[in-house]
């Protein structure tokens, strides 16, 4: 496989020409995004050119407004890695700033795409909007593109069972706990990756050792106890997941992601571990007595094993996952 080039600065890329690019934010790289990526590859092949992606970081919504829409489904590293796997050759990540958002579409087309990158063909999702006052859309691109000798290839919105696929819908579904639907729209499991950090060692004390994850991804379901899968090194294990502030103990303030792996007991500090949510078991709850807590956790564990054994063929399924290198 060719090595992927990732540029964070347009100055670095100037010597290289990118005749075919896909333009977009591509958060989550869902089925709709994949369609754009496939089209980019096809157009690139036609022109015998490198397949390029021009994307933005941080997520525009994070810069323009600080609502929940700014929570991202994947980190930049995950995004570039997945794009590489899909067969993209060059990725240009433009830093998204207010100034960039204020850029007139004509200027972006002329200066950035045409002059700096030598773009001849732009592939975009038909709902893509960019530039000052959101004037840059497929309509405008299709008007100005041919004039500037840039082919515009719009890709129609991907629908699944009549439902439009969008990153914001997927974010909402995950937050609501409808992972099955979210993953269906994504076209792959939604996995939260995080670095294993030192916790309080309390789980071990209770007989339920947990790994505590620090995540850069930001879309989570609501607080509670979940059954899921833990992805460790290149193995997959069933896991009980506690997402929240451990209300039994009153010393935890921030929201934490604690994962108890059912059959593994490894020293994982500093390693990267993934979590996939499968089923919500219950709300997070404070127990007055730690024995009650232990009892409840035993029951959760049994429920989990029972639930998973009924679906042994489906879980765990490591074919589906993209392990970090």
């Amino acid at each position: 496989m060719r090595a992927l080039d990732v540029f964070r600065d347009i100055e670095q890329i100037r010597s290289q020409k990118l005749p075919v690019v896909g333009l977009g934010v591509f958060d989550g790289l869902h089925r709709g995004h994949v369609k754009v990526v496939e089209k980019v590859k096809k157009e690139a092949k036609k022109k015998n050119a490198l397949a390029g992606i021009v994307t933005f970081w941080p997520h525009p919504a994070r810069v323009l407004r600080s609502t929940s829409a700014s929570l991202v489904l994947m980190t930049l590293e995950q995004k570039t890695k997945l794009l590489e796997k899909m067969g993209i050759d060059v990725i240009l990540v433009l830093e998204f700033t207010r100034k960039l958002a204020e850029t007139d579409p004509e200027m972006f087309l002329e200066r950035t795409l045409k002059e700096a990158l030598g773009v001849q063909c732009v592939v975009v999702g038909e709902n893509y909007i960019f530039g000052r006052n959101g004037r840059g859309n497929v309509d405008l691109l299709q008007k100005l593109g041919p004039l500037m000798e840039i082919d515009i290839v719009p890709v129609s919105e991907e629908k699944l069972h009549g439902e439009r696929i969008s990153s914001s819908l997927i974010r909402a579904l995950i937050a609501r706990g409808e992972w099955a639907r979210a993953e269906h729209l994504l076209g792959r499991p939604y996995i939260v990756w995080g670095e294993v950090i030192r916790g309080k060692g309390r789980g071990r004390e209770l007989g339920f050792p947990t790994v505590n994850l620090r995540c850069e991804q930001e879309v989570f379901p609501s607080d509670g106890v979940y059954l899921g899968e833990g992805l460790v090194e290149d193995g997959v294990d069933l896991a009980l997941i506690n997402l929240g502030c451990s209300p039994t103990f009153h010393d935890v303030r921030e929201r934490r992601l604690e994962v108890h792996l059912l059959s593994m007991n490894l020293d994982l500090y500093g390693k990267v571990c993934g979590v996939r949510f499968l089923k919500r078991i219950r709300d997070e709850k404070g127990f007055s007595d730690r024995e009650d807590l232990i009892q409840r956790m035993e029951r959760d564990r049994m429920d989990a094993v029972e639930w998973a054994s009924e679906r042994r063929r489906d879980y765990p399924n490591r074919e589906l996952y993209l392990f970090p290198e």
């Binding site: 850029t103 007139d104 004509e106 200027m107 972006f108 002329e110 200066r111 004039l147 500037m148």
Partner: peptide, 13 residues
């Protein structure tokens, strides 16, 4: 004239 284009470029277009 749109922003970002030279005057000459506009004439050509």
């Amino acid at each position: 004239k749109p922003k970002g284009l030279t005057s000459r470029r506009c004439v050509d277009l």
